[in-house]
Design a protein around this nucleic acid. Structure first.
Lengths: 142, 142
DNA sequence: GTTATTGTTGACGTAAACGTAAACTTTACA
DNA sequence: TGTAAAGTTTACGTTTACGTCAACAATAAC
C-alpha cells in the first residue's frame, strides 16, 4: 500500500490542502490514516472520492450539505445491499429505503431539468458564436 | 404597456424582492422605470431577463460576476450586429470581436464538459435507483 | 545532525449572495 | 379620507466555503 500525503492529494484533486482538511472537518470524507507522528496518510481511493466530490460540486452545483445528503444515500443503499444492518427492524429499513428511492427520483428529475436547460444554453451560445464569426468574416471581406 | 411591481416580478421569477433589488444594485439588470412616487415598474421583458439570469445561475453554476461577463458578451455581439458603434475604430472592434469569440469557445468547451459529467452522474444515479428498487422487491418477496 | 520542508492545530478573516429589521413613503381600497 | 398593504432606502447580520496567519511538530534532504 502506497501512502499519499496531503500535498499529493491536493495536486491530484485540484483542491487545496485547506479544503481537503475542511472536508474532513465537516465529515464529507472519513478521517484518513495517520502516521506515528500524526501526519495524514491517504490512499488512492481517498483521492478518487475527493475527485468525485469535487466534480459533483462543480457540475451538479450541489452545496456541501447536499453532497453529504447524497453520499449518505449512496452508502446507505450499498450497506443495505451487502446485508450489513441485518437488523431486526425490517419495517424501519423498508421505509428508509423507500425514502432513499424517492430522494433519488427527485435527484433524477432535477438532473434532467438541468441537462435540458444546459442543452438550451449550448444552443444559444453556439448561435452567438456563429453570429460573431459572421461579423468577423464580413469585416475580412473589406 | 402593462407595468409590474416588484412583488409580481418576484412571484413570476421565483426570486425574492430583495434579490431583484440586489441584482439591480450590482448592475446585473438595468434600473427599471419608476412611478412618480418612486416605485419600480417592470415590463414583461424585465421578467424574462431575470428568469434567464436565474436559470443561468442555477444551471451553469455561474457566479454573478461571470454572469455579468457573459451578458456583456451577448450584448456586445448584438450591438455589433446592429451596426451600432459604427465607430471609426475598426481595428479595435475586430480585436474585441475576436476576444468575444474566444470567450464563447471557452464557454462551449466548459458546457460540454459539464454536460458530459452530468450525463455520467445521471447514469450513476439511475443505477443506484435500480439497486434500491431491487432491494425493495426482494423484501416484498418475503 | 542540523536545517529546510512539509505537516498539524487553532483561531480569526473574508468574499459572495443575499436576509432581516427599522424608519419612512406611496398606493390601494373600503 | 383614513388606514392597511406594499414599496423604498439604509444598514447591519448571516451562511457557506474556504483563505490566511501563527506557533509548533514531524520528516526529508544534505
Amino acid at each position: 500500500m502506497t501512502w499519499l500525503k496531503i500535498d499529493d492529494v491536493a495536486k491530484q484533486t485540484g483542491l487545496t490542502k485547506r479544503t481537503v482538511r475542511f472536508y474532513e472537518e465537516i465529515g464529507l470524507i472519513d478521517p484518513p490514516q495517520r502516521s506515528e507522528g500524526g501526519i495524514r496518510l491517504y490512499t488512492q481511493a481517498d483521492v478518487e472520492r475527493l475527485k468525485k466530490i469535487s466534480d459533483a460540486k462543480e457540475v451538479l452545483g450541489f452545496s456541501l450539505q447536499e453532497l453529504q445528503q447524497f453520499l449518505k444515500i449512496s452508502e446507505s443503499i450499498e450497506r443495505h445491499r451487502q446485508g450489513y444492518r441485518a437488523s431486526p427492524d425490517k419495517t424501519g429499513q423498508m421505509s428508509e429505503l423507500k425514502q432513499m428511492a424517492e430522494a433519488l427520483e427527485e435527484q433524477l428529475r432535477m438532473l434532467k431539468r438541468k441537462i435540458d436547460k444546459m442543452l438550451g444554453f449550448q444552443q444559444e451560445i453556439e448561435s452567438l458564436y456563429a453570429k460573431a464569426m459572421q461579423l468577423l468574416e464580413n469585416d475580412r471581406a473589406n
